[in-house]
Nucleic acid binder design. Structure first.
Lengths: 403, 403
DNA sequence: CTGAAAGCGCTTACAG
DNA sequence: CTGAAAGCGCTTACAG
């Protein structure tokens, strides 16, 4: 009958039914607080009148809970949404939030934070902060006293979820050095305090390990170099400002275009995106992988395994990282520092032993799990060894022995 | 002094300052409504007392506007966040929202929509619905009377943003058929009404063009076939259920493993992901591209252009699609059906003329812009021709003449 | 099991 | 330019 003139509210519905607003509210929120019969009557009448249920805006104000969790991304949304690692993290976060009736609000820390946007931030019940913020500004604009979890970098006094960057980097470098290279190159990601897209010179100050995962990865490489009698200072480092093909390409081109006697034959890359770009550019130049150039990545993104040659890399389970973070922000697990294990994936871009003329490169593959500590083991990365080897091909047993 | 016992509100601040709540509100929201001196006093006192500004939850209830736009994704969030095309769409949406002080809430249409999640949906000021919903259920749960824009599929009575699928598919098929293939295969994406991951049989009913972009793409292929004297019914169609490597791979493997005299030498794929999977599997089998197998994609994602051979494909500007959609939902442009143009990108996976033994495959590349109608040209795809050719390499002029 | 009432924190006509 | 007051739509003790 009465077509909803404009907008029907809980109060209207209660009046229409001749019951109290409390009963209508309970019909939707607390079935145990009223008789099934009344509840049924309320719900069916609601449907008939086109009442969709209590307004989230009012519920939020009243209860103080919006069921929204904000993810504050250090990078631009453009980057974060198109990067495999951030996407996986968001996937894990979204999965857990969804399972618990929460939704995901995306915020970017890159723009200064117009008052409007940071005002909206105060809708969220909690905050997940991913990656190093360009400035502390945005963090200050976040409402205090609400739960916050940091991912991949440290905020004083806040719980943190991260991976064992230093041991993982150490492990993959040791693995690669098992076949002695002639010349090594390191490709770092946002290592320097001031932007630098290219060869890093001695005088450039580096970010501290507290502030960037890159530093911890470099520390792992350097420890491996020292253990193999290589002077870390003698290994050139190139820096990449953003983990995208377009930014990587010129730096890598400059390396690959070096004369044969200066070009590294082993590139340790701090991300799979960097390694994949190097792979593409190397192929374009007719360089043979792995004979002329060996490459290692970091992250273990799908794209690196769905092509030939596959990347040798460290796999981090970003999805699981997201899940843990989300559980923490929802209070499903204690908000304690959490450290995730990583896994060494051996592909053809840097095989265990470089063998020429293999007919089927797949037989060179194996997968190693680096059980380096795992969750909740404290804030500091643990030392550890690769202690398990899973072979893809039983007919080609290999034993890795990497300290 | 008085450390904020728990939580300071606008009212507290007004009392502390001896001004009305209206003045405090105006200090934050409407600078022109009070003297600069008073505003200054209010803002500095706010800062001193740790008042972060008006609470978004209360503002939202009072004003009826949350500055949140929800994107309802037909696929799971896992898929959408990891798929290049959806990511680009979200990127475009986020960019415009951000510029206008709005934020992005992600919802998935895949799960039935627990009451909690769909309750939260009612926070949003507007809805962007992307892709065909598995059921109409979720749409009904969305609050009526709030703006809604559909992307890539039709909801009766709602504005829609989409691309010219049929003409674009027609164009790329005509282009590929310029070199006569021996056998063609079509790889479709979610074409059938009931799930089918593999060869499509005659009796399987197809979704209508209204409901899926796939159908329009197939129609474009078929028109091209007919124009080239090929009976569409004689061209086999394989269906892919999800646009991911893992789901594509077995279907494509089954095609590539056909005997030489049954295997297609031209695969028209409805997405770049499908084409890239085919490329990888073909390479693993030692098939030469393009001599043994030519491939075309659809979408123009970066991954298809950052490898060798590059994909021949139709580029759609998903980012721009997102921008237009976001402007529409914010009311910055009229909420009218919008049709975006696409572009034919010619890579080495299906070159213009198949020439054997080219030393530099890059010289075979060119790029064609298919100006097929553009924005706001009405709800139905327009016919049209590729009317502009941009050459990557001036030393290798090519003229395309595709009707 | 049900109903009357307070109040979440804000914005906005409106009167001064 | 400023202040007093209503009310956005709901939830939740609390009394019955």
């Amino acid at each position: 009958m009465t077509p909803p003139s404009r907008h029907i509210t809980l109060k209207d519905l209660a009046r229409e039914l001749g019951v109290s607003t409390a009963s209508v509210s309970n019909a939707f929120n607390r079935p145990d607080q009223l008789s099934p019969r009344l509840r049924e009557r309320i719900l069916s009448e609601a449907q008939r009148l086109g009442y969709q249920g209590p307004d989230a805006r009012a519920r939020t104000l009243r209860t103080g809970r919006s069921r929204i969790i904000a993810v504050v991304l250090a990078e631009t949304l453009t980057y974060s949404l198109n990067d495999a690692v951030s996407s996986e993290l968001l996937t894990g976060i979204a999965e857990v939030l969804d399972d618990h009736g929460h939704t995901l609000l995306l915020l970017s820390g890159r723009q200064p934070g117009s008052r409007q946007t940071s005002g909206t931030a105060s809708m969220a019940d909690g905050f997940i902060v991913y990656g190093l913020m360009p400035s502390a500004m945005l963090l200050n604009e976040l409402p205090a006293q609400r739960p916050l979890v940091a991912v991949d970098f440290n905020i004083d006094g806040q719980p943190m979820v991260h991976i064992d960057n230093e041991p993982a980097s150490h492990a993959i470098a040791c693995y690669a050095l098992a076949t002695p290279p002639r010349r090594i190159g390191v490709l770092a990601l946002r290592l320097t305090e001031t932007p630098c897209n290219g060869r890093v010179t001695e005088e450039q100050p580096w970010l501290t390990a507290e502030r960037t995962i890159t530093r911890a990865r470099l520390d792992g490489f350097h420890r491996a170099f020292e253990e193999h009698g290589i002077d870390p200072a003698a290994v050139p480092v190139w820096n990449i400002e953003e983990n995208t093909h377009d930014i990587c390409a010129p730096v890598i081109a400059s390396i690959l275009d070096l004369p044969d006697d200066e070009r590294p034959d082993l590139l340790l890359c701090m991300s799979d995106r960097i390694a994949l770009t190097a792979l593409t550019l190397a192929e374009q130049r007719g360089l043979r992988i792995p004979e002329d150039l060996r490459l290692t990545g970091f992250d273990g993104i799908a794209e690196g395994q769905y092509r030939s040659p596959r990347l040798t890399t460290v796999r981090q389970d970003s999805t699981e990282k997201g899940r843990i973070t989300a559980r923490m922000i929802l209070g499903l697990v204690p908000a304690e520092p959490s450290l995730l294990a990583t896994e060494l994936i051996v592909g053809e871009s840097c095989p265990y032993r470089v063998t020429f003329g293999l007919t089927n490169p797949a037989t060179q593959s194996l997968r190693c799990t680096a059980n380096l500590g795992g969750n909740g083991a404290g804030r500091r990365p643990l030392g550890g060894v690769i202690d398990r080897v899973i072979e893809d091909h039983a007919d080609n047993p290999l034993n890795l022995d990497i300290a």
